[in-house]
């Protein structure tokens, strides 16, 4: 479980996050949504420690990340897995080497065991036959799946996904969403997904935090989001005519 309390972040005189408090439970897909510039990415970066919050705290199962020393932070980072918007695979390594990398760095397993574990994770995301390819030789969707395999190879406790569907077609996005959702339940991880994708919101949003202008505007789940009376959230979620129509039909029923 990850808790954030009164989190603020300013860049010089510009305040981006304004006292956000929320809780992200384990074994759930927690979504952070909001318009561009609402502070989603900054919030994610504050949670994973790429940015230091101006004030407030981030608690990983009760452990304050802000108060931790460097060694404790490094140790905690080994419990984290992250999937970046751009997949962030290492260009100079093959798919298998990318997935094996965290094991090479942090585990004392024998080479055979590391190889077996990496192949198990690649198999889990359905990419065992692409293990010898380089990131440049596979599609964007496959890259995201490799990133998922790399993120889970060390059995992380916390999984972070920064716009995992960005740049993918709707069908591949669904595959990625389902994969993240099932892995979250399988491993009992605390998963936080930063997304713009309404399919993700309505499909896997077990806990949704809506940010507006750097503040936590609304919290709920995918069922509550459909019937929300929050105008800003409603405008954001049902921005397209198609979604408005779908919502009307659902409400009618």
């Amino acid at each position: 479980m990850i808790e954030i309390t009164q989190l603020t972040k300013s860049f010089e005189d510009k305040q981006v996050l304004r006292g956000i408090t929320s809780r992200f439970d384990a074994g759930m897909t927690n979504l952070i949504i909001g318009q561009s510039g609402s502070g989603k990415t900054v919030l994610m970066k504050c949670i994973v420690g790429l940015f230091s919050p101006t004030s407030g705290d981030v608690l990983y199962d009760g452990r304050s990340f802000v108060a931790m020393d460097k060694a404790a932070r490094t140790a905690l980072r080994r419990e984290m897995g992250m999937i970046f918007q751009s997949a962030a695979l290492f260009d100079s390594m093959t798919v298998l080497e990318n997935v094996m990398f965290p094991l090479d760095m942090f585990s004392d397993m024998a080479f055979k065991d590391r190889l077996r574990r990496a192949r198990t994770c690649l198999d889990r995301v359905g990419l065992l036959d692409a293990e010898r390819k380089y990131p440049g030789e596979i599609s964007g969707g496959m890259q995201k799946r490799v990133a998922i395999a790399r993120a889970i190879v060390l059995n992380p406790v916390y999984l972070f996904c920064d716009e995992p569907n960005s740049g993918l077609d709707p069908k591949t996005s669904l595959v990625i969403d389902k994969l993240i959702h099932s892995i979250t339940h399988e491993y009992g991880m605390t998963t936080i997904i930063n997304t713009h994708d309404m399919n993700s919101v309505l499909g896997i949003g077990e806990h949704i935090l809506y940010l507006y202008n750097g503040m936590a505007e609304w919290e709920g789940n995918k069922d509550q989001v459909i019937n929300t009376d929050n105008e800003r959230l409603s405008d954001f979620i049902f921005a397209s005519d198609l979604l408005k129509k779908m919502r009307a039909e659902v409400t009618k029923k």
Binding site: R77, R78, F84, S86, F90
Partner: peptide, 11 residues
């Protein structure tokens, strides 16, 4: 391409 961020996140 966030590869450096990925290394940092891994510790």
């Amino acid at each position: 391409t966030q590869q450096i961020d990925a290394l940092e996140i891994m510790g």
